[in-house]
């Protein structure tokens, strides 16, 4: 990793420390009546380590100036490297945040094939089969155990049909 990036991260952590000190601790700890000693101690530790980290990154920058940039040459673009992961993250986020409303079976039925295609599945039908079979297996297991996964329209329908 480049020292510059390291420095940026260290500064980011320091900014978080400041936010913590100025907003989180007063509003989310002190205002609730909790003791602030321990959160302040931790915040101080984090700030100290982040500062040391930042200084070390600066020292590295001094040691190996600019020179490295030349070697980079033809680098794949950001989207080439991280595009898929970001897409997967977005889909995962939607899946998990929507599950309360859609229930487990429906949302997972949609999520699994989509995720499989993001992972570059070459088969057209296998992901669909996975999406159909896996949620139903889990539903069956949990039903047998007298327990529940997040409820939604499909669960309601199945419960109506089976009970």
């Amino acid at each position: 990793m480049k020292p510059r990036k390291e420095l940026a991260i260290a500064l980011g952590i320091l900014a978080f420390c400041a936010l913590n000190l100025l907003y989180f601790i007063p509003a989310q700890v002190a205002a609730e009546g909790s003791s602030t000693t321990y959160p302040h101690l931790l915040n101080g530790m984090l700030a100290f380590f982040a500062l040391a980290y930042a200084l070390e990154a600066v020292r590295q920058m001094w040691k190996s100036p600019a020179g490295e940039r030349a070697e980079a040459g033809e680098k794949p673009s950001f989207l080439d490297v991280y595009g898929r992961t970001l897409l997967l993250m977005a889909v995962t986020g939607v899946w998990l945040f929507a599950m309360e409303a859609t229930g487990f079976i429906l949302s997972t039925f949609i999520f699994l094939p989509v995720a499989a295609y993001i992972f570059g599945s070459r088969s057209r039908w296998k992901p669909l089969v996975l999406g159909l079979v896996m949620p139903l297996i889990f539903y069956g297991v949990f039903r047998a155990l007298h327990s529940q996964l997040p409820q939604g329209p499909v669960e309601a329908l199945l419960s109506h049909l089976l009970d």
């Binding site: 699994l112 992972f119 599945s121």
Partner: peptide
């Protein structure tokens, strides 16, 4: 490509239960 999505579904079931 099927295994990793499956792992995610398992994790979600595990976390939820």
């Amino acid at each position: 490509s099927l295994f990793f999505p499956g792992v995610m579904a398992c994790c979600v079931v595990g976390v939820y239960s």
